[in-house]
């Protein structure tokens, strides 16, 4: 069963168009011009219960806009959308009981009161039964290490502490889906690690569907099995992380250390088409090769004809590089690939 389903989802905004300078400002006063900004267009999503999905794309690609439409904050300008079978905007209050949301730069906590009071207030807002609340509070306090944070006011918490509290808030009412928009932004490695562990556990143990946006590919590889890439408002890839690599990463590389000085010109001559030296030093060399034409063994054998290899290291295809290419617009993924 799909808990999230969209068909042809679109959202565009109207933005004023202004010419620079005082004159431009005065002109806009009397003859305003606007232009249409398309944030999201023709987005089709089908996410099943229990999945963990990473939603990735450069800044301004439409990630947050999509999440905001799925959570009922924004009204779509076109297309269909269903979350747990409900329309998130028109049936917002019912939908909100089924979802948990974490925005990395926002908090659900009340700034000036102790965290625990925010929790109880939210318990009343979500009408969480006392028993469920007590169980969840104990569970989250243990997993996220909240014990010493609960009696401090939110404004005294560090970003990482606040994010841990916000995660607990998002899951307190046992939602079926949790949306996380940049949950690890600005956090240190230890806190990131803890949050990823937490997300994996609730996904596994409680079957919570996770949809996550992040610029941190560590989050994505660690937590998610499925990857959706959006660019300029369109979905350009939807599939497994391995699938993306298989399809779009042609190159693999091998780094070797030789026992003696490598004769660079003759080494270069030894390389056939599709194998290329990308970095060379006195006794060190990195070679990139088309992984669909050659195996690592083939390449190693070729190198050994030119150098005395004492050690080597194989570098696996790297998701980071793929996504970076997408961000920089260098990799044109096919629509619907």
């Amino acid at each position: 069963m799909n808990v999230i389903e969209t068909k042809g989802l679109c959202k565009s905004f109207r933005s004023p168009l202004k010419k620079p300078g005082v004159l431009g400002a005065v002109r806009h006063l009397f003859r305003p011009e606007h232009r249409e900004i398309v944030a999201v267009t023709e987005v089709d999503l089908a996410i099943a219960a229990g999945e963990s999905v990473a939603y990735v794309g450069p800044n301004g690609a439409g990630k947050s806009t999509t999440i905001k439409m799925l959570t009922g904050i924004l009204l779509p300008t076109g297309g269909e959308v269903r979350v747990n079978g409900l329309h998130p905007y028109h049936q917002r209050m019912r939908n909100s009981k089924n979802i948990g949301v974490v925005f990395g730069q926002r908090t659900q906590l009340w700034w000036d009161i102790p965290v625990i009071e925010s929790f109880t207030l939210l318990r009343d807002i979500y009408e969480v039964p006392e028993k469920t609340y007590a169980e969840n509070l104990a569970y989250f306090t243990g997993m996220l290490g909240l014990a010493e944070l609960l009696h401090q006011s939110a404004r005294r918490l560090s970003l990482g502490q606040r994010m841990r509290c916000d995660l607990a808030v998002a899951l307190m009412h046992n939602p079926a889906i949790v949306f996380l928009d940049e949950p690890t932004i600005g956090l240190d490695v230890a806190v990131k690690e803890r949050i990823r562990e937490f997300l994996k556990t609730v996904n596994r143990e409680r079957g919570v569907t996770i949809m996550l946006t992040s610029h941190d590919l560590g989050d994505i590889e660690d937590v998610c099995r499925r990857l959706i890439i959006i660019d300029a408002g369109r979905i350009i890839y939807d599939g497994s992380i391995q699938g993306l690599l298989d399809r779009y990463v042609k190159q693999r590389s091998i780094r070797i250390i030789a026992s003696a000085r490598i004769d660079q010109p003759s080494a270069a001559r030894a390389m056939p088409a599709g194998v290329e030296i990308v970095h060379a030093d006195e006794r060190e060399m990195t070679v990139e090769f088309d992984r669909f034409r050659y195996t690592a063994k083939d390449v190693l054998e070729i190198i050994m004809t030119a150098a005395e290899v004492v050690d080597f290291q194989l570098e696996e295809p790297d998701i980071e590089r793929v996504v970076k290419n997408v961000y920089e617009g260098r990799l044109e993924l096919e629509q619907g690939a």
Partner: peptide, 16 residues
């Protein structure tokens, strides 16, 4: 001063 003039008139409806 000039920037303030621009800012004040930046939002049409609000200005009027």
């Amino acid at each position: 001063v000039l920037c303030a003039i621009q800012e004040t008139t930046a939002y049409r409806a609000s200005y009027f």
